[in-house]
């Protein structure tokens, strides 16, 4: 093979990845026309891209099951919150509520970067706190406006949860009833996006239910969160994604749980 000074530089890579400015790119074009070794290097890069593109992207844990990861994350965040509360004991509840908002935003960040876009982040920031949750942080100081009788707060949480589950049915039922053999990835793009927008509120409801000890709401929200996460993070090139989501919905018995929960908010 004929030596070429450019072989020892990163020029071909920069050309391939579109990193050269127009003038340098024009020069590189001219060089490539007359330099077989550099053309071969460029063709190698195309071959590498084609070969890697043929491999499935791994963007979720095995079998798309995020529940283990979510448990670990919850544990780690819980420790972080406990430590924070200990340190700022005198600061009342403002820090904890702020942390919860931050947590929801963190979940949103993941969605932003998997394709839903920055618009979603803005939407979340502009969105009101889910009905029934605002200011109902456990442990609020006595006499604060947020302090309510637990039954009233729980009822409010259940009502808000039921409304949220009604909205979420659009995604869950929409996906559970599709025929995977006749459904292309783009056919459930709407559900994928909707799942992303519902995820942060789901997490808030679950956290609130967990904090209040409303375990039945917490369980259904946890299952919903797992499914929404799987849906929103699924890759459009992954042809098995829909079947995996459907298996997850069935495994968690989510349709029935949501039906029970929304048939009477008090009976969740």
């Amino acid at each position: 093979m004929i030596d070429c000074a450019r072989l020892e530089s990163a020029d071909v890579e920069l050309y391939f990845y579109g990193e050269l400015d127009p003038l340098d790119r024009a020069r590189a074009d001219a060089h490539l026309r007359g330099c077989a070794p550099c053309r071969q290097r460029l063709e190698d890069l195309h071959a590498i891209r084609r070969a890697l593109a043929s491999q499935p992207a791994v963007d979720a844990p095995p079998a798309g099951d995020w529940s283990g990861f979510m448990r670990r994350l919850d544990g780690a965040v819980g420790m972080d919150e406990a430590s924070s509360v200990q340190k700022e004991n005198t600061a009342g509840t403002s820090r904890r509520w702020s942390a919860r908002q931050v947590l929801a935003l963190a979940a949103m960040l993941a969605l932003v970067t998997i394709g839903v876009g920055v618009v979603m982040a803005a939407r979340f920031r502009a969105a009101p706190v889910p009905a029934g949750l605002a200011g109902k942080t456990p442990g609020a100081p006595a006499g604060a406006p947020v302090q309510q009788a637990s039954t009233g707060a729980d009822r409010s949480l259940r009502e808000g949860s039921a409304e949220h589950l009604e909205r979420s049915k659009l995604v869950v039922l929409g996906l559970a009833t599709r025929d995977p053999r006749q459904t292309r990835a783009e056919d459930w793009q709407y559900e994928r996006r909707l799942a992303g927008t519902l995820l942060s509120d789901t997490r808030l409801y679950r956290q609130a239910a967990l904090d209040r000890g409303v375990s039945d709401v917490e369980r259904v929200m946890r299952d919903l969160e797992t499914v929404l996460l799987e849906v929103s993070m699924s890759d459009t090139t992954d042809r098995d994604a829909l079947e995996r989501v459907q298996r997850l919905i069935a495994k968690r018995d989510l349709v029935v749980k949501m039906q029970v929960a929304t048939s009477g908010a008090a009976g969740i």
Binding site: G68, F69, L73, A76, V77, D80, L103
Partner: peptide, 14 residues
């Protein structure tokens, strides 16, 4: 990958 992802979310959270 799970360890790293968890670290990321914690860092974002904090």
């Amino acid at each position: 990958a799970e360890d790293i992802s968890q670290d990321v979310f914690i860092k974002v959270y904090r």
